[in-house]
Design a protein around this nucleic acid. Sequence first.
DNA 1: TGGGTCATGTAACCTGTTACATGATTAG
DNA 2: CTAATCATGTAACAGGTTACATGACCCA
Lengths: 189, 189
Amino acid sequence: MSLKHGILGLLANGPMTGYELSNDFNTSLSFMWHAQQSQVYRELGDLEKNGYVTSTIIPQEGKPNKKQYAISDSGVQELVHWLNEYHFQDSLKVRDAFVLRIFFSARGNSDKLKSALHAYVEWNKTLLGQLDAIEQQYLPPERLQAESDALYWLISLKKGRYTFRANVEWGTETLTILEQLNHGGTQHE
Amino acid sequence: MSLKHGILGLLANGPMTGYELSNDFNTSLSFMWHAQQSQVYRELGDLEKNGYVTSTIIPQEGKPNKKQYAISDSGVQELVHWLNEYHFQDSLKVRDAFVLRIFFSARGNSDKLKSALHAYVEWNKTLLGQLDAIEQQYLPPERLQAESDALYWLISLKKGRYTFRANVEWGTETLTILEQLNHGGTQHE
DNA sequence: TGGGTCATGTAACCTGTTACATGATTAG
DNA sequence: CTAATCATGTAACAGGTTACATGACCCA
């Protein structure tokens, strides 16, 4: 239900191609909504069929033609309607295969688990660094003063920070617990 | 891919019915893996078709018959194989419609947003309380000493705590930011 | 007498994933 | 010369959601 609205939201700031949209969902937006390229193209097809967006083909030289999508009036209407629903229950439906594995890990290999946790912590630190880069690129201080969008950008970004920081803290604490176990005696596997 | 292994993991501790499995995924396990009842029944059908589980019908009086599933040898094998993969990339693919909405909220109604955030914070506090209840019910101190499973239970539970706590902190900070905005002057909508 | 729990599922639909296909240009 | 980037998509499949269907028992 929401990739649709993610696309409409982006197009509300100006026309974009499927390629550009897809890149955004895989880079600067990936900490709040991730999507596959093939999914974006399919969704754009549906949106156009339903009249929420229109498309124009832009010829290019030396590169493949672009197909640029623009939001329609009914698209804006649909976006605003969705926006004001503000329910959050769906976003709390967790599906975390990594934690699920750990839950069953008495049957697993504890060395593998430790190195996975280490990589997990490092990766979350990398993600935190990416958020800093995004902030520097899209949210210079002068923009925060001038544009009302920028504040909501910043708030969303903070959500990513809280999440990844929590992951780092949990991972680090867990590693400590597992190390103590090893030194303390009883070893599984 | 992982509901399958979640079911196998639970069945590794003893036989269960679809109804019981489904309840677990909607209550005590929901902070790490959430699943619909209909999904559990479908998955059990597939697992049985592939020989990972076997079923026995247990007649009951005054209640509908139970269909109890037990894990097979190849099921255990499949579980252990999955367990030792330990990759975490999937669990970091975010899809958070609430944050996405906020990202576009310059076009939305800020009073609605504030009350939604308030509810979000309260709900996350409720979830934290549920984790405490789960810990008290399943993880009394004596069990942590005695059973090696219990440690991994606890670690998974901590993940839920970190996550929901981060949500509370982010929501609270965001509310403060939005309040200041209102008092400071410029109002959207 | 109305709603909750116990207990099984099916069907239709929507969303997400993986893999494939094409083909020119550009940077290392 | 090889890999990445630009740019479009399709097809098949896997996984998740919503709604429906049945029926007895228990509690307020």
